[in-house]
Simulated scan of single mutants.
Amino acid sequence: MARDAGEPVELTIGDRVVRLSSPDRVYFPERGETKRDLAAYYTAVGDGVVRALRDRPCMLHRFPTGVTGEKVHQKRLPRGAPDWVRTVRVTFPRYNRTADELCVTHPADVVWAVQMSTVEFHPWNSRAADVESPDEWRIDLDPMPQASWTDVRRVAGVVREVLDELGATGFPKTSGGSGLHVYVRIPPDHGFADVRRAAHAFAREVERRCDRVDLSWWRKDRDPSTVFVDYNQNARDHTIACAYSVRGTPDARVSTPVTWDEIDDCEPRDFTIATVPARYAELGDLHAGIDEAVFGIEPLLEWAARDERDGAATPDLPDLDAGAR
Rank of each mutant, 00 (worst) to 15 (best):
P318F: 00
A313G: 05
D135H: 06
R3W: 01
A128P: 00
E267H: 13
H190E: 15
A304H: 07
Q74L: 07
G323A: 13
N125D: 03
L77G: 14
D189I: 00
D319P: 10
T226S: 15
V119S: 04
W303T: 03
V49T: 09
V90D: 06
I273Q: 15
W84N: 12
V155M: 09
D4V: 00
D24V: 01
W112E: 03
C266A: 13
P57R: 06
V155K: 10
F121W: 05
S255C: 07
D321Q: 02
I273W: 10
R54D: 09
T68G: 12
N232R: 15
E10L: 05
T275S: 12
G289K: 11
H238V: 06
V229W: 08
Q146D: 15
V195W: 06
G289L: 02
A293R: 12
D251T: 14
N234R: 08
D321G: 06
W84F: 05
P250N: 13
E30I: 00
Y244K: 11
E136R: 09
G32L: 10
L283F: 09
V67P: 14
D310V: 01
G284T: 11
N234E: 05
V182Y: 10
V294F: 08
G323C: 03
A293M: 05
R51W: 08
G177S: 13
H287T: 12
V213W: 02
